[in-house]
Amino acid sequence: MSAARPGPWARIVARIAHKEPATPLALFRIAMGLSVLYTLLPMLRDDVVRLVWMDRAYGGFRTLTPHHWLLDAVGGASDASVTVLVGAAVVTGVLLIIGLGGRVTAFAALQLMIALFEINSGSGGGHDRLHTNGLWLLVLAPSTATLSLDCWITSKGILARSDRKDATTRSFLSTRPVAAWPRYVAVFQLVLVYGTTGLQKLGQEWMPWGDFRALYYAILAPSWQRYPTDWVADLYPLTQVGTAVTWLWEVGAPLLLLAFWYRATRDRPGFLRRLSNRIDLRSIYLAIGAFFHISLWLMMNLGPFSLVTMSFYLCAYHHDEYAALWARLTGGRARRSTSADAQPPQAAAD
């Protein structure tokens, strides 16, 4: 007699308790660290920190009265306090990249970036919110379990307690399983970003009766242009196709969740499930997204928007997929997750 199938709540609890190697979260951490630096260093290079984040009394362009506990503690949008906050944020960006300080570093980076973004919200955009959302997930996720200095530092202690002969060897890598749910939430966040922005593209220029002119106008508008774009008139039909595809792709974001569901339940029947898994619908969706983001980055100066958004893409893949990719690239053997991951076979790559 077979065991009774667990109920929905038990399955949700089990899924959230699921563990796996931290490689995707570590890559996400590194990408977020790079994005923090890509946000701040150009501002320092172009002498913009003073202009937008310091009060008029210190060389900024307007009177600023931000409210954040960290700014209150250091003295508001003054020359000294903003310099200290930006400097500290740059340091946390570096620490995220090298993986030192674990969740404490992520929390420090989060609070610093919230404080800085709070100073003059009119000088920011959606990428500010993506940064803080991503950093909060890194506070919740043990993302320095691998690909990190933390891993290198702690590995000796772990190895010394083991029976292995190479117990003195330190390593930056580990397949120690950690909570997988922050990775799932990162993917869900991505779906929210794309899905809800698509639903709010209600201007007539996104619609058939507006002649699908949105991309044409967006490329011509001066605010974000990277280069002169008069050439866009010659590519008008292409921009119309791009407008329609962008809108459909964004409102179709829940397909990404469906693709994950199909991967997690690949042992069940169904034509769509088989098709989705065979063509890897998840990767197709993300490849289209990457194409749009890279095109946007080439044509428009939207700061770190493309980088921070695509950082979330890294959470769409399991450790074993990264290990297999690494093995293909280097011709070596994949360092797959061990039995300690305690994951059912069908979930191994979800």
């Binding site: 989060l110 220029e205 967006a218």
Partner: peptide, 16 residues
């Protein structure tokens, strides 16, 4: 506290 503010309305309407 957590910076989890949402609101994603990128290029919702384009300035013509």
């Amino acid at each position: 506290l957590t910076g989890t503010e949402q609101g994603w309305r990128m290029f919702g309407s384009v300035n013509r």
